[in-house]
Design a protein around this nucleic acid. Structure first.
Lengths: 341, 341
DNA sequence: AATATATTTGCAATCGGTTGCATAATTTGA
DNA sequence: TCAAATTATGCAACCGATTGCAAATATATT
């Protein structure tokens, strides 16, 4: 049953060395002779030695653990992000502790404390809808523990942000809709406290203005971008005295439920109303008509976030990086194709 | 900057008590007087004390961490499972370390070792496609560290399994298809080393036999249930000398890509071929026709798995539980509705 | 061969909580 | 009031790896 764990003391005893030498040997310390090191490694393997991380962490005040806070875990995008983080972290010998803020600032604050308590070496964060300031991260910032934001970020001199160019992306989506003949486009988005939504809104607005189209605030709708919210907002749009001829949704979930609602109301898509989304969720390829959307690489974003953090941790450098912008691409599908090519 | 951490020694000094008393006070040890305990708590809060888990874990040989191994993270189902686990674990003061096997036995073995090394208190596992035996978990089992399987399970006297009744579920799906007039049903599934697929196949078979329909092995297709595989297998089905009048897919991803392929080939669904899936992925409500599928609660499965493990850990009981079966329900939608109601 | 230099290894303190056992303080009982 | 029975607190030895500094050993230099 509970065979005793092998420690460096056991190895030391077996080889007639001191624990200190074993400890150094095990981690390629330069002051250990090569053949001694080999003997240590061999004996360690032979005895089935496993490092005790607690002892090591306690002594070094390092945990080799990365804390992750995301709004929600149950979306394809976020699952891909986490998947990417896990891959990179795992390969570099780090563990991930994942927590969800459920889009609530309060829960986010609790999570921060918990992770602080867990002594994570760094933090990867995508902010909740309603987070206003990031003072709850001061705990980390004051101690110089690296904090990296991804996707839903917050400008801060000490933090690296990993994002896409949401402004440009939304600009492109809108421009595409205009090119397809849309002249009165509605936008369904979420709290503009979050960069992803404010930037998309800005891109949307500028694309309109640049095309000499009016920007009508009445046509911008704020919601939580859930499936249900998509249906509700769409109903409100349907009740407008004058219908728009295009709807740009800030995510695919909403776009899909928007399309479903429009179809139920007998609206032809894209002929009467073109619809576009954001995220390139698997849903977008399944909905009919297929959804025009904006692709951005969740898995890569996760990998990059983790890799950037680990680089900072392992070498104390990389502090100069402030923002990393990932590529994105517009994926044109039928839901917005009004001109035959 | 790096203000020194507050330890129980600091609190002890401030209150003129011993660290031992503070340690006990902080954890509601019965031998501490109520007012002493209160003084300790107050001072701890005042000084901003945070437990050092490493020290505690080192001493107690406990990590308050749960290891999770899943095949892949990037599906809606799995994201929901993890979400549920995180919720329960977090509330009980446990952390989660998540790793992916990428459906590979070898990676799974590596993950097991890594988690063992991390000294997790228990393991929650859903097996990879090609795992044959679970001897790589012996490390855990021999030490009496609890191991709980969910969804893709393996019968073992020491392990609790959390599943749905896949046999019954598949039986119901098939029975429904038969009731809708299907007489020649194909089944697309995955490696039957995994209970979820072998049980579904068994349910499928028995439903046919019970309805006096022939069970034709030629109509059972094995794949990895990816989107691409769905399309490929469907092509093979389309090339059959005699088409089936129903296809039962062992997951929704495959079902959706199957439907797409059939539609491209000009087949009417459900009139010519009825299609059903499994999982109630969000996709199923979006594909046209809407997909008949089998719902089973990922979030709950995750919550239950975590709760069961934690119960075992915290009280050393619950060892008698061998299998927990969650409810499931058939969700009938248009993709299989051939009889008007 | 003796000294200087470089290379290896060991000593011992440390990280911060936990816990068996001993001791001190308090309450109860006669 | 004093001994006996409770209850509360403290002592000190862990848990296992790390690391500054000293000591020992090996190699180079003259």
């Amino acid at each position: 049953m509970s065979q005793k764990e092998i420690t460096i003391y056991d190895i030391a005893e077996a080889l007639n060395l001191s624990p200190a030498t074993v400890s150094r040997g095990l981690k390629d310390h330069p002051a250990i002779r090569k053949d001694t090191r080999k003997r240590i490694f061999d004996k360690a393997k032979e005895m089935g030695y496993q490092q005790n991380h607690f002892a090591s962490n306690l002594r070094r005040s390092r945990s080799n653990t990365i804390g992750v806070i995301v709004p929600r875990l149950n979306s394809y995008f976020m699952a891909s992000v986490i998947s990417g983080m896990e891959k990179v972290a795992n390969a570099a010998g780090y563990n991930l502790i994942i927590s969800q803020s459920i889009e609530s600032k309060d829960k986010e604050m609790t999570n921060v404390k918990t992770l602080y308590n867990s002594r994570v070496d760094g933090l990867l964060v995508s902010l909740a809808y309603d987070t206003e300031t990031i003072s709850h991260f001061d705990l980390f910032l004051n101690k110089g523990i690296p904090l990296i934001f991804f996707d839903r970020v917050f400008e801060h001199p000490q933090c690296t942000s990993i994002i896409i160019d949401n402004y440009k992306a939304a600009y492109e989506v809108t421009q595409h809709m205009i090119q397809q003949g849309c002249r009165r486009i509605a936008h369904i988005t979420a709290d503009i406290k979050r960069n992803v939504y404010s930037e998309r809104l800005r891109g949307f607005k500028h694309a309109l203005l640049d095309a000499m189209l009016p920007y009508d605030e009445e046509l911008v709708f704020f919601s939580n971008l859930s499936e249900q919210a998509g249906a509700e907002v769409t109903q409100r749009i349907l009740a407008l005295p004058q219908l728009p001829d295009g709807i740009f949704c800030a995510n695919d979930t909403t776009a899909v439920s928007c399309i479903a609602t429009l179809k139920q109301a007998g609206i032809k898509i894209p002929e009467q109303i073109a619809v576009t989304g954001f995220n390139n969720d698997p849903l977008s390829k399944v909905i009919e008509p297929n959804l025009t959307t904006l692709n951005y690489p969740g898995q890569e974003m996760g990998e990059l976030a983790a890799a950037t953090l680990i680089r900072k941790l392992d070498s104390k450098e990389g502090g100069s990086l402030n923002t990393i912008v990932l590529r994105h691409d517009l994926i044109v599908r039928e839901s917005s194709l009004r001109k035959k090519v």
